[in-house]
Simulated assay, not measured.
Amino acid sequence: MTMIPSQGHLGPDGRTAGARDGAPGVRILGPLEVAVGGAAYRPRGPQVRKVLALLAVHPREIVDVATLVEELWDGAPPATAVSTVRTHVYHLRQELERELGPVARDTVVTEGSGYLLDVPAGRLDIEEFTALCGNARAGLRAGRRESALEALDAALGMWRGRPLANVAQGRVLTGHTARIEELRLRAQELRIEAAMGLGQHREVVPELIRLVAVDPLNEWLHARLIDALHRSGRRSDALRAFHHVRSVLAEELGLEPSEDLRRLQHHILAGERAV
């Protein structure tokens, strides 16, 4: 494995992920890593990385050999597929033990017809991320926007790039990556809601511009950008943003703007604040 400096992300309890009680932590919100203490390790072999990645997106659940075969060979496995999977698992365990010690080797457990990643809850960054987002949602429901914003900033700060960025993904992992990316988008939307609820309209404009550039067909994001510009006193910029999204929707999908977007345009043209 390749050793890199630990990111030292904080979990919901304020302690560093992967360093608690000496147990390894696994990070998938970016390049796949196994972390322990003050260091993190990335498996070298592409197939070994796939095996670990598939176990990591099913923590503490048995991943059967058939699923591993499907991911590794994308529907065209060789006759030696099952034995090759066993070999990859063996190399993964050896590598973990060599780099992190016997406790890390024991995180990959053989169970019946498959394998599982036996790590305690909270040692995976995706679990810490979803816990923080859950805390934020509860805070927003209770009207605690400041604490919700803090939790969302911590959650989004855990991301280091695309999920499993150093793993060549097959059909199974691609589906999981899409699900995780959707969780990130929802967290970003919740953060925008919390910040705008606190009156931080000017502050969210740069982030909204970035987000609509990444996801140009997301009408919700466009509406929040238009609203934030309008509430920041940038009426002409807000109208330009409306005309831009109308052109994008027409060219890409042959659609007119949503009712939400048209209502915002009406408020701007009438000189009213959006509600």
Rank of each mutant, 00 (worst) to 15 (best):
R273Q: 12
R210G: 14
D237K: 05
L96Q: 06
A195T: 01
G25R: 01
A228R: 04
E189F: 01
G11H: 05
V119D: 01
I28V: 12
S83C: 08
A66I: 07
H201W: 15
H230T: 11
G114F: 05
E259T: 14
R191D: 00
A223M: 04
L190I: 01
L72V: 03
P206C: 03
G101Q: 08
F242D: 09
V65K: 04
L261E: 01
A142H: 11
V205M: 03
P102Q: 06
G45N: 15
R263K: 11
G197C: 03
G101C: 06
R93E: 02
I268Q: 06
T174A: 11
E61H: 12
A138E: 13
R262C: 13
P31E: 05
L261H: 05
A154G: 00
L198F: 08
Y115T: 05
V204N: 00
T16A: 09
E61N: 12
Q169I: 09
S113G: 10
V172M: 06
I4A: 14
F129Q: 04
P163S: 04
E33C: 10
M3N: 09
G37N: 06
G75L: 02
A76N: 10
L10H: 05
T130C: 12
L156F: 07
A250G: 15
L208E: 04
E146F: 13
D227V: 09
L29F: 02
D227F: 09
H244I: 10
V34F: 01
G271L: 06
V34N: 05
R105M: 14
L117N: 00
R186D: 14
R235E: 13
A104T: 01
A241M: 10
D215V: 08
K50G: 11
L221W: 09
H58A: 13
T84H: 08
W220M: 11
L255T: 09
D64H: 12
V119T: 02
P257A: 07
M158R: 09
Y90K: 14
V34D: 03
H267A: 10
M158W: 08
M3E: 15
V48T: 12
R86P: 00
T80D: 14
L140M: 15
I28G: 07
A142L: 12
Q169R: 15
M158C: 07
L185Y: 01
H9M: 12
L239Q: 13
A131S: 14
